[in-house]
Each structure stands twice: as C-alpha cells, then as structure tokens.
Amino acid sequence: MTEISTKEGWREHVNTVYERPVPVTARELRAMSFGERALYNQGRAQFSQAGAFVRTPHFQAFQAAVRDRVMLNAYRRVGKLGLILSGEPGQGKTTSLVEVGKAHERRRRETQHPAAGRGKIPVVYVAVPAQCSAKALMHEFARFLGLPVLNRMTYGDLLDMVANALRRCSTELVLIDDVHHLDLKYRQNIEASDMLKQLSERCGGTFVYAGIAVESTGLLDGERGGQIGKRFEVHVAVPFPLSNTVEKARWGDLLLALENSLCLAEQTAGSILPAAATLHALTGGEIGLLKDLLQFAALRAIEDGTEKLDLSSFERDLGRRQELAKGLGTIPRRTRARTNAA
C-alpha cells in the first residue's frame, strides 16, 4: 500500500472500496472451513477499519463548507477562501480531511467533470513535516505530483514549477495536514506559511488546513494571521458532549453506526446503547478512542466466538480506571486508555 502523500498512493486510496461482507449467522460462521472463516474475518476487519466511515454532524458541516468554497474559488482570481480544521488529537481531523478529498474526487469522476479527466489531479494531499522550511514544503508538493527536483533549483523555481503543475492538472482541492508544524515562533515556518499563501494565489485550488490546536500556533495572529483569519473559516473538532437530550441522541447515533460497522454475527442492532454512558466516560466523547475501544472489543468477540460485544467488560474497565485514578491521582485520559489497553 503506497502512502497517500504521493499521487499514486492517493489514487490507490480513492480507487479502493472495501465492501461490507455479506452478513452471516453464528451458525453459518462456525460451519465455514478455517480458511473461509479467516477470509471472512479479514474482510470484516478491512471494512471496519477502512471501509466504514461515520458521517457525524460536524463532518457534514465541514464537507458542505469545503464544497461551497471550491465552487466560489473557481471564479476568484485573488483572495481565495479556505478552511482550517483544528482540534486535539483523537478527534478524527486527518480522517475527515482525507474523506472530504476522497469524496470530492469520486464525485468529480462520477459526473465526468473535466477536473477528473486524463492527466488531471483534482485533489492534492500534503503533510507538513516537522521543522519545515518553505523549500522543504515545496519538496513535499513536488513529491506528491511526481515532479523532478534538481539541486540547483531555487525556492522561486520550485514555486513556479509546483504552481504551474497545479494549474495544468486542474487541481481544485489542496489538503494540508499537520499544519500545527508551522509554528510561527520560528522564522523558517513563517516563510513556509507565506509560501502557502503565494501558492494559493497562483493556482486555482481551495486550500484546507488541518492540525492540532491550530489557533495556538500563531498562524492566525498578527498581520499575516489577520489575512488568513479573514479568508479561512475555522472548524474546531471537539469531543462529543453528553449534557442534554440532543447531544445524547447524537452520541447514540454514533454508537449505532460504529456498532453496525463491526459486522459481528450475534450483535443485535441497538444492543450497544445501554453502555452509552459508560463508553462516554471511558473515552471522554473522543471518536478516535471510541473506535479503537470498540474495534478491540470486536476482535475479542471474534476470537472467543461470542460474536457480540461484552458490555460488562466496559463496566469493568471503567471501574479499574476509576480505582487507578484514586490510587495515582488524576492522569490524562489518553494515558489511562493506553495503560488499560496494554
């Protein structure tokens, strides 16, 4: 599997579709041969991990905002509009960013849009490396596009080459992940941030940033940040709250969608809901932690042949965690989760 930060890897990711395995009963599963059962288990693991995507209300709002800006920027020469997806780790930022790009490219292909024609690249995905200079970031764009980079090339040469390539390839969406690495306390990061603005003005694509607590990196501060703040709408990914009826309903919808994605033969739809409060206490409403917790539980259910989630195990996990917190004092939720998983 090729990394998605190259056009070949991105194309492979967009082309790959993991279908949900045909549902079987526990009896039918037990009647399978060892090899058949192994293939079936592999298929449902693939679907659960990579094929199923939960379209939360926050994701739907983010996707709609991206679509609006792609449409508006197609007619703008200057002052391109963009988006920033910010939040703490575990909130599904990268997953949402990649899913928006994948859905956009597949939609362009299905409608036979010129941007998805032969030789075109409608979506570009670049992850910002740590301690990134403007020239290093240009190298990441060149690597995705498959452009040759010569040692004698200056920053200006690289900018021209990448901007021209993005225009020729009719790129509509430029996804910049790990943008928190552009901490503007460092001069080289300021230059990289300025480069992104220059590149945005020189190509037709809509730029979408994603990163951890982007608001604290300085990207939106000062004169430079003022321009970004006026043109880029910030969407903040936060844990699911659980303080009123509407929020509890949304948390329940998320649990039902994830329960369905696990493809367990004996799991009755909706039987996860009695554990809603416990699962929220264990994960703090973080979708990343919730997915990991449920997928490990599903793996245990497959291995022991029960084919359904053991809700009592979540209660036991929460009890052990509370006892640990009493003995050691309050520790970060993510540390507690890793300790428990180990």
Rank of each mutant, 00 (worst) to 15 (best):
D292E: 15
A64R: 12
L309I: 08
R67C: 11
S243N: 15
Q295G: 02
V234Y: 09
H104P: 00
V236M: 00
E247F: 05
C263Y: 06
V78A: 09
W251G: 00
T25K: 10
Q322S: 14
S193K: 01
E315C: 13
I190N: 09
V236F: 02
T2Q: 14
E266H: 13
T111V: 15
P241T: 04
G288C: 07
E323Q: 11
H13P: 03
V126N: 02
K197C: 08
V162G: 04
R20A: 11
A45N: 06
A301V: 03
T335H: 14
G288M: 09
G288D: 04
G285F: 11
V54D: 08
A301F: 07
R11C: 12
R152K: 09
A213S: 15
I302C: 08
E28Y: 00
R106P: 01
K7P: 01
L29F: 11
E110R: 15
F141V: 04
G319A: 11
L159M: 08
R67N: 14
L309D: 02
M71E: 14
A165K: 03
S313D: 10
T245Q: 13
S170L: 07
R37M: 08
I272R: 03
R37C: 01
V17W: 12
Y155N: 01
G270Q: 06
D221Q: 10
D160V: 09
K185M: 12
G204W: 00
K326H: 15
V14I: 06
F314N: 04
T245K: 14
V100D: 02
L173S: 02
G222S: 07
M195E: 00
D304C: 07
L159Q: 03
R300M: 09
T268C: 09
F34W: 15
S48R: 11
R77P: 00
V128G: 00
L147M: 03
L199D: 02
M1V: 15
H235V: 05
V24D: 01
T16F: 04
Y186A: 14
G225I: 07
T25R: 06
K248F: 05
P57H: 05
R231Y: 09
V179R: 14
Y186V: 15
R143K: 14
M153C: 03
S33C: 11
F47Y: 13
R202F: 05
D194P: 05
A163E: 04
M138H: 03
P332W: 10
A38T: 12
Q91K: 05
E36Q: 13
L29Q: 05
R336I: 02
D317G: 11
P332A: 09
V124S: 08
L158N: 04
T268K: 13
G92W: 07
R27W: 12
R187C: 00
E286V: 13
G204P: 06
L137S: 01
R338Q: 07
R300T: 12
R168N: 11
V98H: 08
G90H: 01
L264Y: 02
P57R: 09
D178R: 12
P23I: 01
V124F: 07
F232Y: 15
G79W: 06
A297M: 01
V14P: 02
N151L: 09
E172D: 13
T56K: 02
R316I: 13
K7H: 14
L219V: 06
L256R: 10
H113M: 15
V149T: 04
L299I: 14
Y18G: 05
D183M: 06
A301W: 02
